[in-house]
Nucleic acid binder design. Structure first.
Lengths: 170, 170
DNA sequence: AATAATATGTCAGTGTTGTTGACATTCCAA
DNA sequence: TTGGAATGTCAACAACACTGACATATTATT
């Protein structure tokens, strides 16, 4: 195949992209996401938890004292779905549920020591793979990686992302 | 925050990475994957299909005449799980199931015209977002994006990916 | 020819995670 | 005081993954 046909180029100021290149990105996302979740999944399976528990632990750790509503819109699930997960985490002593002082309707969520411990184990496993991938790829690639991912997000999800990551440079 | 502390650097030949940067990548993957599936999901919902149907259609389109076993290892699910999806797609006239000529135990899968049509609609929706993200991010970023994703894959998944994408340059 | 292995399909049961819809409670605010 | 917001909970359901067991061709091996 001729080089020019299969390489990213700027044509009329726009990036020229073949369907093949786009398809490659789509498949990269599919296969990479499987790797992305594989390590935490193994730990979760031992404790008979699922990905939903991981996600809840992650975002509670990330924003200690967050409310249920905030967590709901971050995760993008229904409250019934989240509630099932939260209930088991609270029963198992991994998550604390504190009635708000200002607004007593709200519940502020935080991790217990045991919760932090599991979240750390899950995060470490996931970060190890991410670190290894980053190092294989190099600093420039990491910058591109985040840039494309950010451009792929829905605007409302992007807002949650920006709020969490605080606009830190990559 | 001081610049040097929060920027990717090479230290002793290794990329220096803070937990914060790794966490950012993890969250970027989470939020971006939601965007990645959002558009096809809307089309699938109308036809009362799910993501599993999309994945099957995608990889059959990608490797016409592929066998059930090959599709199984690409998708990484059990044959019972795939069979449920394949059966509905065959019944609905989207997928063809042809007995092998060499080995009559095998079934060779391919798309019908209707199958190609739906796969195109799903792919177009997904590619549109990918194209838009690529163009926002630029050619260099796209290269980095794929590089990091490839480094994140499990080796056995990477093999499937390489086989499909055929080592084309990004 | 008999036997083992392979490729596929199917049935039954189970678990996680998502959905709707309905309803109760508590509390803030107009 | 009334309306709405935040939360929790119950029930039913669907998608999609899993395991285990079993059936049926077909091919490979001995």
């Amino acid at each position: 195949m001729a080089q020019g046909q299969n390489r990213s180029e700027h044509t009329h100021g726009l990036l020229f992209l073949t369907d093949e290149q786009l398809r490659k990105g789509i498949e990269a996302m599919f296969f990479a996401y499987r790797g992305f979740t594989a390590d935490p999944d193994r730990i979760l399976a031992e404790k008979s938890y699922g990905r939903a528990h991981h996600r809840a632990l992650h975002f509670i750790q990330r924003s200690p004292g967050t409310t249920v509503n905030n967590l709901l819109s971050t995760l993008g699930v229904t409250k019934q779905s989240l509630n099932r997960v939260l209930r088991t985490l609270i029963e198992d002593g991994l998550v604390l549920n504190k009635v708000g002082t200002n607004d007593k309707r709200q519940r502020h969520l935080s991790l217990t020591d045991a919760g932090r411990e599991l979240e750390q184990a899950l995060s470490n496993a996931q970060r190890d793979r991410m670190r290894s991938a980053y190092r294989q790829a190099g600093a420039e690639a990491v910058y591109g990686f985040c840039t494309v991912l950010e451009a792929m997000m829905d605007p409302d999800l992007k807002q949650h992302y920006d709020q969490l990551t605080g606009g830190d440079s990559v």
